[in-house]
Amino acid sequence: MYGLEAALPVLGESLDRTQVRSGDYSDWFEISRRGLYTYDCHGHSGPYEQVSAPSVALLAEDLAPDIAEVAGLLRLPVLFSETTRLSFDDDTTGPLGGAVTA
C-alpha cells in the first residue's frame, strides 16, 4: 500500500464483496480497513465491481486537512455503500454518465 491511504488509520474490518476472484486483493482489503470502498475491473474498461467495503466508513469531515484538500478535488454523485458496480462509458443512464447499479 502506498500513497495517501497509507497515512489513514485502521478503522475497522474489510468486508469481501467479490463473487469470483483471481489474484491478490490484499491491498484492496487493507484500504477498506481504513474506511474506503474499493473497486476493480476485469480488462481495461470496466465495469468496475466493488471488491471490498469498510465495516466503518471514513467520512470526509474526519480527514486531516491536507488529505481533505486532495479528496475534495473529486466529488462523485454516488453512495458507495449502495453501489456495487460503476461504469464510466458513454451511456447516460447513471449520474456518472454511465450505468451505476446497487
Score class of each variant (00 low, 15 high):
Glu13Cys: 12
Ser87Cys: 12
Gly97Cys: 10
Pro95Gly: 14
Pro9Ile: 06
Arg21Asn: 11
Tyr25Asp: 11
Pro54Gln: 01
Thr18Ile: 15
Ala7Met: 13
Gln50Ala: 09
Arg17Gln: 11
Ser87Ile: 09
Arg75Pro: 08
Leu96Ser: 12
Leu4Val: 09
Gly72Glu: 04
Gly46Thr: 07
Leu8Ser: 06
Leu11Thr: 09
Cys41Arg: 15
Gly94Cys: 00
Leu8Thr: 03
Glu69Leu: 14
Ser52Gln: 05
Glu82Val: 12
Val100Cys: 15
Val10Met: 06
Ser14Ile: 13
Leu59Trp: 04
Gly12Ile: 14
Leu76Gly: 03
Ala102His: 09
Ala102Lys: 04
Gly46Arg: 02
Arg75Cys: 10
Ala6Pro: 07
Tyr48Leu: 04
Asp24Met: 02
Asp27Trp: 09
Glu30Ala: 15
Ser32Ile: 06
Leu58Ile: 07
Thr84Leu: 14
His42Lys: 12
Met1Asn: 08
Glu82Asn: 02
Thr38Phe: 02
Leu4Arg: 09
Val20Thr: 15
Ser45Gln: 08
Tyr25Gly: 12
Val100Ser: 08
Pro54Val: 00
Gly97Ile: 02
Arg17Gly: 08
Val56Phe: 04
Asp66Glu: 05
Ser14Leu: 06
Glu69Lys: 14
Gly23Lys: 15
Leu76Thr: 08
Thr92Asn: 14
Pro77Ser: 01
Glu5Leu: 13
Arg85Ile: 11
Ser45Asp: 14
Glu69Ile: 11
Thr93Phe: 09
Ala64Tyr: 01
Asp27Pro: 02
Asp66Thr: 08
Leu86Tyr: 00
Gly43Val: 14
Ala7Pro: 02
Ser26Cys: 14
Ala68Trp: 13
Leu79Phe: 10
Tyr37Asn: 04
Phe88Glu: 04
Tyr37Thr: 07
Leu86Arg: 10
Leu36Cys: 02
Arg21Val: 08
Phe88His: 07
Val10Pro: 07
Arg34Val: 05
Gly46Lys: 00
Ala6Gln: 08
Gln19Gly: 15
Thr101Ala: 14
Thr84Val: 09
Thr93His: 12
Val51Glu: 03
Trp28Ile: 03
Ala6Trp: 11
Leu73Pro: 04
Asp16Phe: 10
Ile31Asn: 00
Asp27His: 07
Ser55Tyr: 06
Leu11Glu: 05
Asp62Thr: 05
Val10Gln: 07
Asp24Val: 08
Ala102Thr: 13
Pro77Phe: 02
Leu86Asp: 08
Asp89Ser: 10
Ser14Asn: 06
Gly97Leu: 03
Leu73Cys: 14
His42Tyr: 15
Arg75Thr: 10
Arg34Leu: 04
Leu86Gly: 08
Pro65Arg: 01
Leu8Gly: 00
Gly12Tyr: 09
Ser45Val: 01
Leu79Glu: 13
Val70Met: 05
Met1Lys: 13
Ala57Pro: 04
Asp62Ser: 03
Ala60Gly: 07
Gly72Leu: 06
Tyr39Trp: 05
Leu4Pro: 10
Tyr37Cys: 07
Pro9Glu: 08
Leu15Gln: 11
Ala68Val: 06
Ala68Leu: 06
Gly72Ala: 01
Asp40Tyr: 10
Leu58Val: 01
Asp91Gln: 12
Gly97Tyr: 11
Arg17Tyr: 05
Leu8Gln: 05
Ala6Arg: 03
Phe80Tyr: 11
